[in-house]
């Protein structure tokens, strides 16, 4: 597959004037950005800047959060996410990986097979194929192929995080959201996952929230900077580090002289 040049791909996700409130409190405001197909889109920003809230708005988790209000518009493949008649179908297109690995209390196999099963795939042979493919893509297959029946929650933290990625991939997502995935993972595993992401980007669009600016620099084609609920700016990732950006706060943050 030929990868489009940076910035050349069609728009996958279009966000316009997005604002998020929890009750009366504003968590994020003024976000307008486009994520293009087959890019890794980085989001950086210190704690409490609204990064997780942004991801939650994309797959309509506001429906499950009392008091969470989302304004503005979010279009996935040109369709307003709030106009999907079936929110479950929307969420199946969006895989999510959390900061702390959430191995569901099911076997390794069932963790990965759950999403296909929810979609109605029952045939064991079909499921086997999906499970092996997703675990392989998450670089976990070799480690767990002999213990597919043991509990997913008993794997090591790093393995569980890759299991979470395999589970997200089992949805066959068009968009993959990663929220500070490396927070509980050792550096070696982090590097392995980063390699996986680079290969995945041929097929999937990835949004990578990270509090490691160097990780954004290693992976992201373009990066947005959020600060205390404010959308500061978005640009080519390298530009954020070489000073070709407009806002001095971005420069200060990536260079670690902040606050």
């Amino acid at each position: 597959m030929v990868r489009p040049e940076n910035g050349a791909g069609p728009v996958k996700l279009a966000v316009k004037d997005l604002a998020i409130h929890y009750g009366p409190k504003s968590a994020l405001a003024g976000v307008s950005l486009d994520v293009r197909e087959h890019e890794i889109f980085g989001i950086i920003g210190p704690a409490n800047s609204g990064k997780t809230s942004f991801l939650r708005a994309l797959n309509r988790m506001d429906l499950h959060t009392t008091g969470m209000r989302v304004e503005g518009s979010i279009h996935l493949d040109g369709r307003d996410v709030r106009k999907w008649r079936n929110v479950y179908a929307l969420r199946r297109q969006i895989g999510v990986v959390f900061p702390l690995p959430v191995g569901l209390p099911l076997s390794v196999y069932d963790n990965v097979a759950l999403s296909p099963r929810l979609r109605g795939i029952k045939n064991k042979a079909d499921l086997d194929v999906v499970v092996e493919r997703c675990l392989t893509r998450a670089a976990l297959w070799d480690e767990v192929k002999d213990r597919l029946d043991s509990l997913g929650s008993l794997l090591s933290g790093g393995q569980q995080q890759r299991l979470t990625i395999a589970r997200a991939l089992s949805q066959d997502p068009k968009l993959l959201l990663l929220d500070e995935f490396s927070i509980a993972v050792d550096p070696v595993t982090t590097m392995r996952i980063e390699d996986i992401l680079r290969t995945l980007k041929d097929e999937i669009t990835i949004i990578l929230v990270t509090n490691l600016v160097q990780q954004a620099r290693r992976l992201a084609d373009r990066t947005a900077f959020f600060l205390s609920g404010e959308f500061v700016e978005v640009g080519e990732t390298e530009d954020l580090f070489t000073g070709a950006v407009r806002d001095p706060r971005t420069r200060a943050y990536v260079e670690g002289r902040f606050g």
Binding site: N59, M61, H64, Y88, A89, L90, R91, R92, I94, G95, V96, F98, L100, V102, L104, P105, L106, L114, S115, R117, L118, R119, T164, R167, A168, Q171
Partner: peptide, 25 residues
């Protein structure tokens, strides 16, 4: 609660989440 969130994020309905993850546990 994280288990429920993980399921919802996968596109499971509330009932599917209850049936596959909450009730068995």
């Amino acid at each position: 609660h994280a288990f429920r969130e993980a399921c919802w994020n996968m596109g499971a309905s509330r009932w599917q989440t209850i049936r596959h993850v909450v009730l068995p546990n």
